[in-house]
């Protein structure tokens, strides 16, 4: 078993979070969010991977042939859909922020505090 995919997943998650926390541009920030989210795709696929496994299509193959886990692929697909919706919404809000204030810097649209 290789630890590389897990290391990549951890790196993507942390670097994405760092980007979200320090970003000065909402569009950049939305991309950082997708980077964070990508870590869960890598992790899911790594979890379900079987060495020398086939694609999980079981029609016409011998019983007992190793195949990768189809569940994690379904989870990843759902995850992608969910993430796209959230990012689309944030981009729409970034557009509104720009229309109203001429900036997409989250620090400058911070109108309310305390």
């Amino acid at each position: 078993m290789s630890y590389l995919p897990y290391a990549v997943a951890a790196w993507l998650c942390l670097v994405g979070l760092f980007g979200v926390a320090t970003s000065r541009n909402l569009i950049h920030l939305a991309i950082c969010l997708t980077v964070t989210q990508s870590s869960s795709y890598v992790l899911l696929l790594a979890v379900g991977y079987v060495k020398h496994g086939r694609a999980p299509i079981f029609k016409g193959i011998k019983l007992g042939t190793p195949a990768v886990d189809p569940v994690v692929q379904a989870l990843t697909l759902t995850d992608v859909v969910v993430s796209v919706v959230v990012v689309a919404l944030i981009l729409a809000l970034a557009l509104d922020a720009h229309r109203l204030s001429g900036t997409v810097d989250p620090d400058e649209i911070a109108d309310i505090s305390g």
Binding site: L26, L33, I90, L93, A97, P106, I109
Partner: peptide, 13 residues
């Protein structure tokens, strides 16, 4: 106004 945008952005992120 800007307030709802800020609120929704902070919430969503």
């Amino acid at each position: 106004r800007l307030g709802p945008v800020q609120g929704a952005v902070n919430y969503a992120i």
